[in-house]
């Protein structure tokens, strides 16, 4: 006789804590363990995976080295730049200290009179007393200069660096010692004396000179005395052959071409040959198309 088993009962015995009859047999089965090499592989893989989240030591080392190299490089560049700046300052400091010297004009009757002429004249005098940079800054705000800016800009070659300041005091002294300047020309007269068509025909250097002259003419047309601001004078001086004759040259520039030529001839005949040559050179710059006489042409050559 065989007895049919109850599957539910067998299952219940299997699910008992001891696993029933088969549980006991199963526990007697061999208990194979993973081989040692497998243990090593698994643990090594796990360690590698955990370390993978962090930067590997080699990369961290490279990062540190790169950072250090960057700092050293930056420090080197900063040191070099600082060295260059120091050397530049050492080169420019004499000029700066030189520029910072403000020429003092002795108070005289003529200057007092000039100051009392008009506010523009006073501004012109203030220009004289200012350092070059300050004068440049101030000129930017003068409407007359804006008009000059609207005119064709002078060529870069025609804009030399500011002249050395030591030249200014003699100029100022000379000007202070001079009698009242010649009355300014009216704008109409000057327009006639310097027609625009000559501007177009003139060379680049001439146009730059004319630009400077036109600005001066506008300043004078505003009613101020025949004084020039320091930078303007400096520009003119840089073009003028000699600083000693610059004042006379500027006065002669405002003459009509025929009168200027007559003045040149007079200077030559009076024995002031060098001054005549300087005047003639400037005349030829300003009036390149003007036909000179043989005498003056020889003088120019």
């Amino acid at each position: 006789m065989s007895k049919r088993r109850d599957p539910e009962q067998d299952l219940q015995r299997l699910l008992d804590e001891d696993g029933g009859e088969f549980g006991a047999i199963y526990r007697r089965l061999s208990h194979p363990e993973p081989p040692r090499r497998l243990d090593r592989v698994v643990i090594a893989n796990a360690a590698r995976a955990v370390r993978g989240n962090r930067a590997p030591p080699a990369q961290r080392w490279l990062l540190g080295l790169g950072s250090a190299a960057g700092i050293v490089l930056a420090a080197g560049i900063a040191w070099q730049v600082g060295k260059q700046i120091d050397s530049q300052e050492a080169q420019t400091s004499p000029e700066r200290s030189h520029r910072s010297v403000i020429p003092v004009e002795p108070i005289s009757e003529s200057t007092r009179l000039q100051k009392s002429v008009s506010p523009d004249a006073a501004a012109a005098m203030a220009d004289k007393e200012m350092p070059v940079e300050a004068v440049h800054a101030k000129q930017e705000s003068v409407p007359a200069v804006r008009r000059r800016m609207a005119s064709p800009p002078p060529a870069p070659a025609a804009a030399p660096p500011p002249p050395p300041i030591p030249e200014a005091p003699p100029l100022l002294e000379q000007r202070a010692a001079e009698p009242e300047p010649a009355p300014a020309m009216s704008a109409a007269d000057e327009a006639q004396a310097f027609p625009e068509k000559k501007d177009n025909a003139s060379s680049e250097g001439t146009s730059s000179a004319l630009g400077a002259l036109r600005s001066e003419r506008q300043d004078q047309a505003a009613g101020n005395a025949a004084t020039m601001s320091a930078p303007k004078a400096a520009v003119e001086q840089s073009r003028a052959p000699s600083p000693n004759s610059s004042v006379k040259l500027r006065q002669n520039m405002h003459l009509a071409p025929q009168d200027w030529l007559a003045e040149i001839v007079r200077l030559k005949n009076a024995g002031h040959r060098q001054e005549a040559i300087e005047n003639l050179r400037l005349f030829r710059r300003m009036h390149p198309d003007w036909q000179l006489s043989d005498e003056l042409r020889r003088l120019a050559e």
């Binding site: 006789m1 065989s2 007895k3 049919r4 088993r5 599957p7 009859e21 088969f22 006991a24 047999i25 199963y26 007697r28 089965l29 061999s30």
Partner: peptide, 23 residues
């Protein structure tokens, strides 16, 4: 699954045979 009670594995088979058969 019809097995007589007297043929239960723990009674009939040796321990080695039991383990082998379970395997």
């Amino acid at each position: 699954l019809d097995a007589p009670e007297d043929e239960q594995p723990d009674r009939v088979l040796s321990e080695f045979e039991q383990r082998r058969r379970l395997q």
